[in-house]
């Protein structure tokens, strides 16, 4: 599961973004893209030394300016659950397509795939 995938899973959740210049942006993630550009809503922007605060209803952050993001704790487990469910769903669909009826095969395939996908960024050589 790639970092950007995790970020997409964080949509509608509160996140904290620290920019390269030290400013922190706290808000709810609306959308993100593959360049890590973000749109946030109900944002509170703090200056680098925490002395000035700005409340902004909507905000766009260009990914290239991000230093790091802090995400909600439960997000990791949620995303892994989702990922596992998606994988199993996909496997079930694939098996239906191939018309495999033997159950032992289906189970070992699902778990083998879940294993290889949990260790991340596995090269997608199964084509």
């Amino acid at each position: 599961m790639l970092p950007l995938y995790l970020l997409t899973a964080a949509k509608n959740q509160p996140i904290l973004v620290e920019l390269k210049n030290g400013e922190t942006i706290n808000g709810q993630l609306v959308n993100c893209d593959s360049w890590m550009n973000l749109t946030l809503k109900d944002v509170i922007q703090s200056s680098p030394h925490g002395d000035e605060f700005l409340k902004i209803s909507e905000c766009y952050i260009k990914g290239i300016h991000i230093k790091y993001l802090r995400l909600p704790e439960q997000l990791m487990d949620q995303a892994k659950e989702q990922n596992l469910q998606n994988m199993e769903q996909r496997n079930r669909n694939n098996q239906k397509r191939r018309g495999q009826s033997s159950n032992p095969n289906a189970n070992s395939n699902a778990s083998a795939n879940a294993n290889s996908n949990n260790s991340n960024s596995a090269p997608q050589r199964q084509q």
Partner: peptide, 11 residues
Amino acid sequence: YRGVFMIRGEN
């Protein structure tokens, strides 16, 4: 404590 931290690679 910082919790779940996503760091952009260039940093």
